[in-house]
């Protein structure tokens, strides 16, 4: 089963290779991995999409925790979470296709971020299914280039009962 694991690590050189080395050395899977500094610049946040049965995921989480540069590990599948991925797609557009391309961009609430006489470069964000869908639609036009960020995810805040929320608003 697919799991999204959120890992807070020290922001220093060599940490990425320690994490990547752990996965390759123990035969675990990485489907995607994204990493960037957090608000606190001494730390980085990694979002790792991996897969495996319960036992393997348990081992992955434990082994990540065991790495000395890893500060915190959360298996997001144990809670509610939201996740997003961004893709940048460069499409060939002949005269007749240019309007169709823009229509697809519109339907998916994507953006055209660069344009030439024969291409559009399209940016789209969403869950992986949405990305797959727009790729499928754009493919007949001719995709010249495609890059994807891999997923980033964060746990949902627990929803408070409505009454509590209004009280708080009132006080403010």
């Amino acid at each position: 089963m697919e799991h999204i694991i959120s890992v807070t690590v020290e922001n220093k050189f060599g940490v990425l290779s320690r994490v990547a080395g752990l996965f390759s050395g123990r035969g675990f899977n990485i489907e995607s991995l994204s990493v960037a500094p957090t608000l606190d610049p001494s730390m980085s946040q990694m979002t790792i999409v991996t897969s495996g049965d319960e036992r393997i995921i348990e081992q992955i989480v434990k082994h990540l925790n065991k790495l000395i540069d890893v500060i915190k590990v959360v298996d997001l599948n144990e809670t509610e979470f939201v996740s997003r991925e961004t893709a940048i797609i460069k499409v060939h557009t002949k005269d007749a296709d240019r309007a169709e391309a823009l229509r697809i961009v519109d339907i998916f609430r994507a953006n055209v971020i660069d344009s030439t006489t024969s291409t559009y470069t399209i940016e789209v964000s969403g869950d992986p299914k949405k990305i797959e869908a727009i790729i499928n639609l754009l493919q007949p036009l001719g995709i010249k280039d495609l890059v994807r960020t891999g997923r980033v995810a964060v746990a949902r805040e627990p929803v408070r009962p409505v009454s509590v929320q209004t009280k708080k608003v009132a006080r403010e």
């Binding site: 348990e58 081992q59 434990k62 925790n65 065991k66």
Partner: peptide, 8 residues
């Protein structure tokens, strides 16, 4: 002492 040893 090593959690990764358990249930490996």
């Amino acid at each position: 002492i090593d959690p990764t040893s358990i249930r490996k």
